[in-house]
Simulated assay, not measured.
Amino acid sequence: MKLSIIAKALTIAAGGAFVLGITPAAKAACSDVTLASHHFAYTSTGALVAAPIPPVAWGPYAEVGVQHFNGNGSVTFIFSTSQNGNVGPGTATGTYSVNDDCTGEFTETGGGITSHFNFVIDADGTGFQAICQDSGAVITRTGRRQFVERD
């Protein structure tokens, strides 16, 4: 008798979950193409607590720019920085890769320095958050998609 009551309760619970639409969350499906042909306006903020190479000054750091992912693992940057109060424009290139769980990494190489970032793509693909992985840098970046290129 007790087994029958438990079976009925489980059947009702399972049916209720079906009716309410409760299902396990779908696994993300991202790749390098997820960011393809997108320009992301970004802001980086933080500090350099140890200089990676001698001409780079320690102190507060900010960068604003446009980051373009080509869909084939290459990324370009056009930006302006303020590094301990020294302001200037710049360009950089790099590589990137995206994992199927929508995490990834990219490099940014310009001015003789290569920075390494880990990132995660927003659920709808319109943005990302990143953190610099280099020793001596405490820098985060947030990017928001600007537009899609049209051929």
Score class of each variant (00 low, 15 high):
I139A: 10
N84W: 03
I53S: 09
F18G: 12
Q83N: 15
L48I: 15
T109Q: 11
R144V: 14
T140R: 11
F77I: 09
A123C: 04
P52V: 04
S115L: 15
I113T: 02
F69P: 08
M1G: 14
V49W: 07
V120A: 10
G143L: 06
T114H: 00
G127Q: 03
I22D: 04
D32T: 06
A123Y: 01
E149Y: 11
V33L: 10
G112P: 09
I5S: 08
P55V: 10
M1K: 07
D124V: 08
A62N: 14
E149G: 01
D101P: 08
A47S: 15
G136W: 08
G46V: 00
F147R: 08
E105K: 10
R141D: 14
T93E: 07
T142F: 08
I139Y: 15
G143H: 08
P52S: 09
G125R: 04
G127F: 05
V87I: 14
T142C: 03
I78C: 03
Q146A: 07
T95P: 05
V49R: 06
D122N: 12
F40A: 04
P24T: 09
F106Q: 06
G88R: 00
C102V: 12
S135A: 15
Y61Q: 02
Q146C: 08
D134I: 13
A62P: 00
N99E: 12
